[in-house]
Amino acid sequence: MTIVELIGTGCVVLGIPFFLSGTIGLLRLPDIYTRLHALTKADNVGLGFIVLGLIIQSSSWLEVIKLLLIWFLVLMASATSCHLVADAALRKKIKPWTREK
């Protein structure tokens, strides 16, 4: 295994915990706003690491561009849908969760 493959695989592996924490956040956090936060941040970082790891190992430019485009699109989709859902939830007057005193 070359050093490049090693670094690439390391990056990909590093992405997995972010996905897991995103899912745990989705299941455990108390309200829609906090869950939105867990989902749209952690997962995108995870995907970023996976894309980075694959780019390091990639040999063709077309593939690199495609991978970057995929990551960019997912970022845009997450950011937009997070904003729209949080906005709609505020419009519906769903109260953000606060710690009970």
Binding site: T23, L26, L36, L39, D43, I50, V74, V85
Partner: peptide, 17 residues
């Protein structure tokens, strides 16, 4: 709906892997 969105991101990652 957001849980379905999770599928979007995770699905992309699974497909890439």
């Amino acid at each position: 709906m957001m849980a379905a969105q999770l599928f979007g991101t995770c699905g992309v990652a699974i497909l890439l892997l």
